[in-house]
Simulated scan of single mutants.
Amino acid sequence: MNNKQSIGVFDSGYGGLTVFKSIARELPQYNYIYFGDNARTPYGDHSFETIYQYTLECVEWLFAQGCPLVILACNTASAKALRSIQQNVLPFKYPDRRVLGVIRPTAEIAGDFTLTRHIGIMGTRGTVNSESYLMEIHKFFPEITVSQQSCPMWVPLIENNEHQDTGADYFVKKYIDQLLTKDDEIDCIVLACTHYPLLVSKMKEILPGHINLLAQNDIVASSLALYLRKHPEMECRIGKEAETSFFTSGDPQAFNSNASIFFGKPVVSKHVNMKAQC
């Protein structure tokens, strides 16, 4: 059934492109629409109510483009908007649509990568302050000790394409040291920001060899593949022409230039005026 409906992938900025890159690699046959709300990023600086409203507006825009399934490839949106959308909006307004996030798939498997039962979370201030990872991991692995560390300089370094420079080494080591100081038994670190896979090589140079790094991109891609196998009624609605479209609420030229850092190849996007959607 090739009806050209698409899987929507949403992020407040660019980081979700690391998730989408893995999704498109694992599931290349499907149609996709990627939307970045770059005009209103970073979401983490906003209130809970504002993040929820922005996220809902973007989800509804993707629904209007013919996406029956939307992936929130954004930790802040997943932490502060996903549950409300799933519980308070979808059943009453969009009963045949689904919205999935990035936190639960990561939490479900985190305990499989630690022998000491001590895990570290590295994320933005918004994600860390939400304590979403603590709550989700403890649902599946109540015995695990979880410590968190916010890394406020990592996203700016990545978005300015300075993450591979030697100047970035100081901030990578700084936050790793701060996390391990909190708990020296940590043997698994969850990268709770979709930007952070771009820092994995630098992190591995600094971290002791026994510490596992869990990046979300491949985890979410595998989780989506499993979801589609378990839900053939949704899978059959997705077009299989392998078509992809990119949209941004920001400047398309800037998006195209920066997106290639995260997606690994050239991107051509179109502009969406989200203010006009409000």
Rank of each mutant, 00 (worst) to 15 (best):
P208L: 11
I261N: 14
S47F: 08
Y43L: 02
F20C: 01
S12W: 08
T127I: 03
V128Y: 01
V128C: 03
K80Q: 14
V99Y: 08
P142A: 09
G264T: 10
V272I: 15
A24S: 12
V70E: 11
N212P: 02
Y196E: 03
L213C: 05
T244P: 01
H118D: 01
G111P: 06
M234H: 04
K230F: 01
M234F: 13
D251E: 13
S201M: 11
A79R: 02
I33G: 09
N129H: 11
Y52L: 15
V200Q: 14
C236I: 14
K4E: 13
Y14E: 08
K202N: 10
I119G: 04
Y30S: 01
I206V: 15
V190P: 01
I85Y: 07
L191P: 07
L214R: 06
V200S: 14
G13Q: 07
S201K: 15
N75C: 12
V99K: 06
P156S: 00
M274G: 02
S132W: 02
C67A: 09
E205I: 05
P105E: 11
Y52I: 07
I219E: 08
Y34E: 02
V102R: 09
P232Y: 09
V172F: 06
E243T: 06
Q53F: 11
E108W: 02
S78A: 14
E26I: 06
G111Y: 02
V9Y: 02
A276E: 14
S12F: 05
V190T: 00
D218S: 14
V272M: 01
G36L: 07
N129E: 13
T18A: 00
D45F: 04
R40L: 09
E243L: 13
F113A: 02
L213H: 01
V89H: 04
I51G: 11
A192V: 03
K265P: 00
A225N: 13
D183F: 08
S47V: 04
V89G: 04
T124W: 00
K240T: 13
F263N: 10
N258S: 13
V190F: 05
T127Y: 05
G167Y: 12
K230T: 06
Y227Q: 02
Q65R: 12
L199I: 06
D96K: 15
Y43Q: 04
L72G: 03
Q65S: 07
F247N: 01
Q149A: 04
D251R: 10
S12Y: 06
Y196S: 03
V220Y: 09
R40S: 13
V59E: 08
E162H: 08
E26K: 14
I85C: 08
T181Q: 08
D187K: 00
G15V: 02
H231R: 12
K265Y: 10
M203R: 07
